[in-house]
Amino acid sequence: MTNDPHTLVGPYVLHALPPDERDLFQEHLDRCSDCRTEAAELMAAAAHLGQAAAVVPPAALRDVVMADVARTRQVAPGPPVRRAAPRLSWPTTLAAAAAISVVVALGALLVQADHRADRAQDITAVVAAPDARSVTVRGEGATMRLVLSEEEAGAVVIAEDLAAPPPGKTYALWFGEGSRMVPAGLFSPDSDGSVRTRVDAVPAGTVGVTVEDAGGVDQPTSPVIASGTVQ
């Protein structure tokens, strides 16, 4: 059970996960009813820790809050708006499609959705691994994080607000091996600038990121825009 994402449920109910790992675990919760049940139960236990800390509130607070309430509108009923589900890109062929190809395209869409679920699972496995470590990969104008696990034989690139690469280009990840840099994988941010990409390699020393042709290259051909070192 070395790669059990369930272990994140403890830090999750105590609000002790960093935002990116919390998002990943929430995606996992959407799919795992066992974890949802456990999270609800442990959340209730955590609430007892809070109740045990209860103190007599300052007398003035009541009037302040009741005055706030009198001038504040409540939200509409229904579940609170949460982050959107992963977007599925609608195959472009669909635009001109006849009924038969709609069926084919829907099939493709389902396969794609399935891949996304698998991918999210792979990512969670690395992040939740007991030996997971985190490396900051930083450069001018680009900061990302690499979470790696030897047990999972993989690493996950995590970034927010990363600029889109120029057209026809992609970000390339390199791991140092002796004096060489070996290719570890390619990644691009989604339209929000966020990156969650798993690669099946684990760096032992330096980590670098360059911008390369979309097809990928055997060795870096452009300056390193961000780098870090595994401690």
């Binding site: 403890g10 109910v13 105590l14 236990a45």
Partner: peptide
């Protein structure tokens, strides 16, 4: 402590706390 140890201790501890409560 290693990260993994902290994750599992927190989860195991919360389960015990739930049961004890």
């Amino acid at each position: 402590l290693p990260l993994g140890t902290v994750k599992t201790r927190i989860r195991d501890g919360m389960i015990r706390l739930r049961d004890a409560l």
